[in-house]
Design a protein around this nucleic acid. Sequence first.
DNA 1: GACGCCAAAAATATCGATGTTATTAATTGA
DNA 2: TCAATTAATAACATCGATATTTTTGGCGTC
Lengths: 222, 222
Amino acid sequence: MVEAVANTRASAAYARIREAIIVGRHQPGARLHIQDLSDELQVGPSPIREALNRLVSEGLVSQHDQRGFRVASLDLKDLDDLFDARCWANEAALRASIQRGGRDWEENVVLTLHRLRRAPRLVEVDSGLRGAQWESAHDEFHNALIGACGSTWMQNFCQRTSDAAARYRAISRAALGGQRGDEDEHVAIAEAAIARDEDKAVSLLTNHLRRTRDLVFNSWQR
Amino acid sequence: MVEAVANTRASAAYARIREAIIVGRHQPGARLHIQDLSDELQVGPSPIREALNRLVSEGLVSQHDQRGFRVASLDLKDLDDLFDARCWANEAALRASIQRGGRDWEENVVLTLHRLRRAPRLVEVDSGLRGAQWESAHDEFHNALIGACGSTWMQNFCQRTSDAAARYRAISRAALGGQRGDEDEHVAIAEAAIARDEDKAVSLLTNHLRRTRDLVFNSWQR
DNA sequence: GACGCCAAAAATATCGATGTTATTAATTGA
DNA sequence: TCAATTAATAACATCGATATTTTTGGCGTC
């Protein structure tokens, strides 16, 4: 999902700040002071600013001229906005994948599903590493599902919306103290997809996304 | 589409470089030297680099660590890739708009269509301003069509794919020396949309996009 | 006690300079 | 003449310092 090593300080800073935002370590709406990040990551201001500028176009950071950067904020309206986009994009991409996908696609779906089921769930609340591992496997599985759609543009968009959704999941997880058990849903989606049952697969996937949305919605407070 | 004035040199540089890429003044694959841009825009290297970093996440510029920036390249495979994404995204967004749109949406479609028809076409090959004016009106119309879909995320994605498509159009225009007459297509799409005929509107819009793709495809050479 | 104004402090956006890495040119040996 | 190695050049990534702008805090007035 993101390169472990980077040849440039800006790229390294980009990866780390990005991760921190998605995981929720940098909270929505919080200001991102150049100096603080500079101290934290042990690099000068320039690479930090370059990293932040990349994140701006990615929608993870918002920028106001002369007033610095802050973590893009989240709210219920945006949650529904995002939910719609995810449904539409994933539906189209999944249908195309089912139509166009070959053996390699099927095998990749099976493989990533297996890895997802094997990935450790978040048992204790603060075992960050385990959570990250599961999130990564989860990501891989959903990418595999739409991996044969034939459009990198659409896949990138799905990835981006998925990143945004991960931020909401992190909040909900922090509020509820655990994750829901949705292994069955993933299995069902994979089976329908491989069986080339477009409508069923889409319906299962859409409901899967909706349940995620509802979980976040219900755990929302302030 | 993009703010005319910017309070910061980085934002100003961003807008100008972006425009230059979309219009095709910076050609696909061309290297973007910091120094050159610095001289051209009369600002130091830092704002230029920040601008380029934003464009990287936007997909208009590619970056290779330690090897600088270059204009994102275009090819026929990417054209089809992009075409699929545009069709899927616009179909979903248009359907939602037709279902959810109210009076204000209808009126905006009519208004932007009128402005598009009134906008001067590109008569002479190098009258850049006129072309830009039409491109802008064209953009506004397509945005208006999906303006009531309810998802900013999806609208932003459509905008982004539309920008990429504009780059292909610029190439094809330069090769052919003119634009095709597609006023009728826009009128038909608008009418079907306002008549709330989902399937017809979607079909017209999809064909509209396909014709654009075909035009570019046929004018491709090197 | 609240509002507005002014000064002090902090933070940003930008510059110019420098170390490092890639690219080009020159040179040597086969 | 060409390949490979090395020197020279150019470009990039990064730093540290500075000018501007925003924010904060205090002060006086209504």
